[in-house]
Amino acid sequence: MKILVCIKQVPGSSNVQVDPVTGVLIRSGIQNKMNPYDLYGIEVALTLKERYGGEVELITMGPPPAKAVILEAVAMGADRGTVLSDRKFAGADVLATAYTISQGIKKCGEYDLIICGKQTTDGDTAQVGAEVAEYLGLPNISNVCSVDEVKDGRLYVTAALDNKTVKESVSLPCLISVDGDINTPRLPSYKVKRSLTDDVVSFLSFADFSDQDPNHYGLNGSATQVERIFPPEKNTEKHTVSGNADEQAAELCALISKLKLI
């Protein structure tokens, strides 16, 4: 089986603030890491490879240092990966991101199964997977909570769907998004990491894609536009409960009883 996992490098912390005077975003001490939800997808891919043979590749989109997540996944046991990197991709919304990734996938080859994590921790939209599937014309199943088997060209999975769980099968090739917590992702191997060479990572840019219309990528290819960004509204009806711990607890109890909670 040839499996592709879509992964992303995200900021290690979501601690972003707006400077109240200048309006500039303050992102202190950014350290990047693999999107934690992607680890479950990689684990699913590696488990399938162990069971059915084949190869596990990765794809990510980001600035060149994003190759770190490819190297990490290779150290976990994946074979190789591709970074889609170009300034023309900057400012992409869900639509343009999904389109860029789908173009990258078409360039990388043909896969039996494409796996995405549930969502990223920086965008939290959980939408890119389904849009990639649409662009590639593949069936997709989200919220997969167990991958049961591959038989006669079909993948058997169990997926969560609101108040139900659904056992279903889908013909390959297809795309699935896997839930968090469905397995315990293995740790990267130190030994593999030490012997890693850069040739497990390839880079693709706009010039490599078959669609050469720059208006389909990045900000220009985005349907949504951020009109403004602003700090969240502060609550104006704010009451400070002061005093020592005894007094504070007493006031909260008075509130609780006023609200008829006891």
């Binding site: 995200v10 900021p11 979501s14 601690n15 972003v16 603030q17 707006v18 975003l25 992102r27 921790t121 920086d122 965008g123 939290d124 949504t224 536009q225 951020v226 009109e227 403004r228 960004i229 602003f230 700090p231 969240p232 509204e233």
Partner: peptide, 9 residues
């Protein structure tokens, strides 16, 4: 942006 910022889109 994964942070304490609201975006109007």
């Amino acid at each position: 942006f994964g942070g304490n910022i609201m975006a109007q889109i």
